[in-house]
Design a protein around this nucleic acid. Structure first.
Length: 579
RNA sequence: GCCAAUGUGGCUCAGGGGUAGAGCAAUUCACUCGUAAUGAAUAGGUCGUGGGUUCGAUUCCCACCAUUGGCUCCA
């Protein structure tokens, strides 16, 4: 193994050993606790602990201090293998470990790792000594609860999250990145920039403010223009539909606890949690020929889902959101090309936002419907389409929907965090359930294949993602206010207002700050609002008929005519430049 | 939904059994200023909601609501 943090295997081993060191420290300080499990994760490690009290930040500091002591003690970490009986005897006071041992298969090697007085059931591997861990580059970050084995019916344990690096500077860099992420939190920016609100009266139901609406509508205008170019039509299906539709689609049986329902004139209705069933009705409403296919039908549908209260999170996880949905009906032969067409569209859209992505292929889950051969064909087609497009992918085994395999697009933002937005799902169930048909060249009825896809995923979530990605400093074409005119003195107020209305008449979103404040103050506020251009006007500009332009980045672009400024804006908007 | 923490003026936060305080924002006045905070004055809060304990609760207790961090789930 390469002993470098660049090497994922080594990084995991290092942090796994940190998890053991943390467990040892906890046991030294609080001998009454029982240990569950403690793995390395993406950016650190955690340990689940059953304690009769709650850990607080001061306790985490103490544990961290003890961990440093354990590192200084340079305890050798020694592996041993025991028989099942010996293992059970050794762990007789650790009920969770006993459960783990009992669940191991008969032929399993049961290994332990000892460091000083501490010994833990573990498959390993580990570092050879606690001295290998850099004590001052460990940080315990938070504690939260987690269910034993992820089962909500089982006991809730306390999880301590921590991270560790081989150098203190690297830890500090990581902590800075966490702070930066916090600074970019879309919930904070959404409030500061006047984009949206979440209120007690509507948990999970966001309110969009005027500036947020500009953002949302601009995204939607863009979405429409792209989809038109890619041959999509657009429909809108009702928010609320009768129970028998949801029974036919299967939602009433499988998704009812997430649906808002009502009784109207003695009949059950449900608010749509998905757009597909309505889309199926539209397809069925007329007879289709093979010449109509592929038929691409988009819908920006507002859906409502009763998500658990504890899962709500800003715009990332809400109870009502707009899916930028589309259903594509096609023959099985057209599927591969059609998926490529969708990937091309995704490529175009994501690159406009400067978001890169990784594709995951989610395959047949254990609990699925339909023939295995059909699943195999569908999954192979998804993979083949990716390969044709030169896209690499990773397999997410068994993570597909029960009705078909899917491609998931995980977007990486400017901080390297990933968000699942786009998906391309093959649906092998709905065409059956709704008995969709088209008339083939042979004059016979055939069943079409169907793709269900979203690019943004949810407009609301996507707004959250790009708010954090751009730290609120949206590209000019998306900025709710594109330019703000700042008169230096009252003498320039009239000229400022003239410039503002000129900009507005030319189709730009412009404001003017006419308050009798100093220029520096107005600039400070405009930058806090992430307004791309500040148009400063004073006596000199009035005299020369110019505007003095400053970009939010701090760049002073000097004086220019209003026409050249507008030409510059136009160019930046039309190219959807990220600046 | 579960576990834990939190909830004080528009925002960020301090305080604490004897009915609240700061900074920023707001309003008014003065200043008329060339690239990240001009000064002064004024106004603004039934301390999340509902019960309970108490002579007295914003403070202690209980319930509920919401938020935050997780679990679970997912666009």
């Amino acid at each position: 193994m390469e002993y470098s943090f660049e090497n994922e295997e080594y990084r995991k081993m290092y942090r796994h050993s940190c998890a053991h060191i943390m467990a040892q420290a906890v046991k030294r300080l609080y001998p009454e606790v029982k240990l569950a499990i403690g793995p390395a994760i993406e950016n650190g490690f955690y340990y689940d602990i059953d304690a009769p009290f709650a850990f607080n930040p001061e306790m985490l500091d103490k544990i961290e201090e003890e961990m440093r002591a354990i590192c200084r003690e340079k305890l050798p970490i020694v592996r041993s293998e025991l028989s099942r009986d010996e293992a059970l005897e050794l762990m007789k006071d650790e009920s969770y470990k006993i459960e783990l041992i009992n669940d191991l298969p008969d032929d399993a090697v049961i290994s332990f790792y000892r460091q000083g007085e501490f010994i833990d059931l573990c498959a390993g591997p580990h570092l050879d000594s606690t001295g290998r861990v850099k004590g001052n580059a460990i940080r315990l970050l938070s504690c939260a609860s987690a269910y034993w084995r992820g089962d909500p019916d089982r006991k809730s344990l306390q999880r301590i999250y921590g991270t560790a690096f081989p150098k203190k500077e690297e830890l500090e860099r990581y902590l800075l990145r966490l702070e930066e992420a916090k600074r970019r939190d879309h919930r904070k920016l959404g409030k500061d920039l006047g984009l949206f609100l979440l209120m007690d009266e509507g948990p999970g139901f966001p309110f969009f403010l005027p500036k947020g609406m500009i953002l949302k509508n601009t995204l939607i205008d863009y979405w429409r223009s792209v989809h038109k170019r890619y041959g999509y039509q657009e429909i809108s299906t009702p928010m609320m539909l009768r129970r028998d539709l949801w029974e036919r689609s299967g939602h009433w049986q499988h998704y009812k606890e997430n649906m808002y329902t009502s009784v109207i004139d003695g009949t059950d209705f449900a608010i749509k949690p998905m757009n597909c069933p309505g889309g199926m009705l539209v397809y069925r409403s007329v007879q289709h020929s093979y010449k109509d296919l592929p038929l691409r039908v988009g819908e920006l549908g507002l859906v409502h889902r009763h998500e658990l209260s504890g899962t709500l999170h800003g715009l990332f996880r809400v109870r009502c959101f707009t899916q930028d949905d589309a259903h594509i009906f096609m023959t099985w032969e057209q599927m591969r090309d059609e998926i490529k067409n969708v990937i091309r569209l995704f490529d175009e859209v994501y690159s406009v936002f400067g978001l890169s992505y990784q594709i995951e292929v989610s395959t047949m889950p254990e609990d699925h419907m339909g023939e295995v051969e059909v699943w195999d064909y569908a999954t192979d087609t998804l993979k083949a389409a990716c390969e044709d497009m030169g896209k690499s992918y990773v397999i997410n085994e068994g993570d597909g929907a029960f009705y078909g395999p899917e491609l998931d697009f995980h977007l990486a933002d400017s901080l390297g965090r990933t968000w699942q937005c786009g998906t391309i799902q093959l649906d092998m169930q709905l065409p059956e359930r709704f008995e969709l048909e088209y008339i083939g060249a042979d004059g016979q009825k055939h069943r079409p294949a169907m793709i269900h896809r979203v690019v943004f995923g949810s407009i609301e979530r996507f707004i959250g993602v790009i708010t954090e990605h751009f730290a609120g400093a949206f590209p000019l074409w998306l900025s709710p206010v594109q330019a703000i005119v700042l008169p230096i003195t009252d003498r320039a107020s009239g000229y400022a207002e003239k410039i503002r209305s000129h900009l507005e008449d030319s189709g730009f979103r412009a404001e003017a700050d006419l308050r009798p404040e100093k220029l520096g103050y107005k600039i400070r506020e405009a930058i806090a609002q992430k307004i791309p251009y500040m148009v400063i006007v004073g006596d000199r500009d009035i005299e020369n008929e110019t505007v003095s332009v400053r970009h939010r980045s701090g760049e002073d672009m000097g004086a220019m005519s209003i026409d050249s400024f507008e030409a510059l804006l136009k160019e930046e908007i039309e190219s959807r430049m990220i600046k």
